[in-house]
Amino acid sequence: MDCKEGQRLIDGYVDGELDLVRNLGIEDHLHGCAVCSGSYQERRALRDGIRAHGVYFTAPADLRTRVQRSLRQAAGTTPARRRMPWQWIRVVAPLAAAAVVALILVPPVRGPSPESILTQEVVANHIRSLMVNHLADVPSSDEHTVKPWFNGKLDFSPPVKDLVNQGFPLIGGRLDYLNNRPVAALVYQRAKHVINVFVWPSNKNARSEAAPVTRQGYHVFHWEQAGITYWAVSDLEEGQFEKFVQLLKGQSPTTS
């Protein structure tokens, strides 16, 4: 075996991936060739360094829970959100065909709209934030602490407004996951009631708002303003909650 062949096979030799004949061949060559033998030692040192130096990243503790939760959602009651539409074309096309047939044969049954699924998600995240004692990643009543905390964690800068003077103190912020994207959750409090405000960028610039809805006793307000989507959820009494929403929108609340 010559050096050219020797050099070509060194990695296979280090990795124990050569067949017997080539293995014997390279061992024989390494005995007699200082250059190739040096390369071999070098490769071993590098590989052993990688294996020994803890460059393996183990999953963060809460990732398992997060993955399991999303799997349950995909398998269970809530329809899975399509995250990468082009991957599902194969599945969707026959379903669409079947749906056309079904539309003709069967009276239409309406499934939940995306909006209503999202509402459910918002309420679920709100409840979860109260349940697992994970209200705020950054517990602070200072908007100048909360806002910069999101830097580098999100691809947008969430609007943070403290409303302590109006009776709705900001108590912190945290990262959350909604509508298939990481979002900012701003947490406010009124007496014992917690208000979660989820925000993320919207593709619409126009101002719009949806009528407030109530799910499982929680009120949900949704609006879009200046390119940001807002979802606010709380068990706060609806009149006060509405006042809060108006303050957040930057309007003075209508006195009632």
Partner: peptide, 30 residues
């Protein structure tokens, strides 16, 4: 762990790696 390690090395940051793992598990389940 294997999934996270690979995703972490490919994305080179923790946050995106976690998103990738979640996404990959959903696709794997499908």
């Amino acid at each position: 762990d294997a999934a996270y390690n690979l995703a972490r090395w490919l994305t080179r940051n923790e946050h995106d790696a976690q998103d990738m793992v979640q996404e990959a598990y959903l696709r794997a389940f499908k």
